[in-house]
Each structure stands twice: as structure tokens, then as C-alpha cells.
Amino acid sequence: MNNIMTARDLCLWYGQAQALKNINMDIAENSITALIGPSGCGKSTFLKTLNRMNDLVPGVKITGQVCYREEDIYDKNVDVNQLRREVGMVFQKPNPFPMSIYDNIAYGPRTHGIRKRGELDEIVEQALRDAAIWDEVKDRLKKNALGLSGGQQQRLCIARALAVKPSVLLMDEPTSALDPISTSRIEELAMGLKDRYTIVIVTHNMQQALRISDNTAFFLLGELVEYGDTQTMFDQPADKRTEAYITGRFG
């Protein structure tokens, strides 16, 4: 398996404060990587460097390299919109557009030039099926997306991200705002998507990391403390700090 995304000596500053210190990480294709750590440790910040969403924050400075398919994404010749199409994102709080379900899913493809009704119909259906929500909404595609429940909205957002056919899907604490049943549905969904997509998921919930991820990265105060196979890391953490976090002594 090759590494679809890598980070080399990645440092990030918000103004004067350094949020990421020398991150080195390889993300393998078609795997699920979990990023864990206490609040403020930099895991969400790191996630956002992978699709350059940090660019939107004023005063951000980045050094080092992040490569997608072996090309530095911070190079000035990179088309950031194309990058974001290939590296999609799902946010912590479900944020469907105030439009119909159909228009939500079709938004991405339409932005990228697909106008034909037939094509869009296919894409919408496929995305909703991939997100395991097709059966629930197929009769109400024209209804406003904000009428769905929290869990449904989040699956809708996943479908919306999948509609542009990304290779990597970044998920920023996608289930922290949801009830347990919705949470387990989304975890199932993620595991089902693994064979076609690469997933990087930030999670506050260690059990979730244990349940679904292949590799886990433990962040603390902007540093990548430990990174490796999930099972190994949880059974025999190499670093003392990792052990302390996992056993719940802080966090």
C-alpha cells in the first residue's frame, strides 16, 4: 500500500503561537487513520492542513511539506479548489446548506461543471447510497435538508462530500454532536467506505478510534507523540504520555 498523503517537518503558527511542531506522518491509502489527543493538542489543526482549510484563518504561517500523491500541496502552482475536491471534509457540526437534499448533494458536482440532469441524478443517488441514507430520503429529495434529524444531516454531509469523488475523506469529530445510534451508523459507514476511500478521522473518543481505525496518531501540545498500528498502540503504547492518555489519567 502506498502513502497517499505524507507530512514532513510540518510546523504551523497562528500568529506568534506555534500550533504544530515538526509533524512527520505517512497516511496509507485505503486505511482509516484516527487522530486522538486532549483538547487543544493540534489534531484538528493538523487535519485542516491536509486540505488547506487553514488558509482561511488570517495570520496563519506554515513551514514544511504536506504531500498528496507525492506532490506538495502548498506549492504555489497548486489549484486549491481541485485539491479540496480530491481531499474532502466533513465537519463536527452537521452543516447542510439551506437547500433541498438534492441540491445539497448536487452542489459539488455543479460547481465542477456537471449540469446535465441525468448525470446529476445518477451522482446524487450514488452518493446517497454510499452514505447509507438513500432509502431514507429517496422520496423526499426536493425537501429542505434542514428538516432531517442530526444523524441524517451528518450522513447527508458525508454524501455531499462523496459526490465529488474524493480520494481522501477528512472527518473532524463527525459524531461528537450525535446520539449513540447515529454514531454507530456513521462508524459502520466509515468502515464500509474504507475500501474505496482513505479516511482520516479526528476523534475525542478513544473507543471509537479503537473500534474503527487501522492506525492511530496521538497528538499532545502540537507534537505528534506516537503514531502506529491502532491495536499495538492501545495494547502496548511506546511512549509514557500515550499510556497516560489512553488509561485516562488526563485528557
Partner: peptide
């Protein structure tokens, strides 16, 4: 809400597209 704009940008839309759509 800012979330709408973030979602749009994360899908690969340009800022101008985001504002108008």
C-alpha cells in the same frame, strides 16, 4: 453562518462561487 461557507469551500468551490451560490 460561517459553516455554510466552510462547507462550500471544502467541496472545492471558489470564494466567489461560495458567496453567490
Amino acid at each position: 453562518p460561517r459553516e455554510y461557507e466552510e462547507a462550500s469551500l471544502a467541496l472545492g468551490a471558489t470564494p466567489v462561487e461560495t458567496w453567490f451560490r
